[in-house]
Amino acid sequence: MEKNFLGECDPPRQAMRILNMFEQTKPCEDFASPPVAVRARGVVDRKSGVGSEKLRSNAKARADEWVDHVIRIRDAQDQAAFAELFRHFAPRVKAFLMRSGADASLAEECAQEVMVTLWHKAHMFDPGRASVATWVFTIARNKKIDALRKQKRPEPEDLPWGPEAEPDQEDLLTLQQETSALGQALAELPEKQRNLVERAYFGDLSHSEIAAETGLPLGTIKSRIRLALDRLRHSMK
């Protein structure tokens, strides 16, 4: 278990600092503001921060594009759109399931089933509530519980819908931006903390281990997603 040292090398504090800087960036000003943090992976020039802005706008553009793909499947049974989604998500779902304990052939089988479900449930995807990656994650997670853990998954009731069928375009943009910002924040967490989060989602950590794991950056994750929370609450009024 990771010890928390007080002082400069305290990873949670470092993460907090990075995330706090991040918080000051309002989603709508994302592109006007200077890059405030650099991604830990190679693409970014660490000194100047060049690339951070580009990276973020790329991630956002791609998230928007995936929404468009799902809508094309929903409205026009567009197989070309599906093929692109498949190429992006199926190998990730397969890797996710293998990290969660499935062997290669079961993971392959389940990843295909996840993509079949994506097609059939395209009409239920709500871009005002989740990004495509989040939605695919929930389908993959349910498949994991069903096929790997052999358990049922009790699901909460759906929210009763208001009169407006389509979500507000601006809300939709904000949610998708928040989601890509969160993904970036996750990528920027110190290695150890990011590992803990990933292990919690792959199922390497049991729920009691999660409760006991003081290095798990739940606080920093929470502060990162506060804006998304506010938005969700707003949309439910």
Partner: peptide, 28 residues
Amino acid sequence: RAQLASFDTVGGAVLEECAETAMSAGAL
């Protein structure tokens, strides 16, 4: 419910960051 949606979003980000494992030939 809102808090749960946020944790699902973290799950989506973890999935997005996953190293890819190639699907078998003819999977699509």
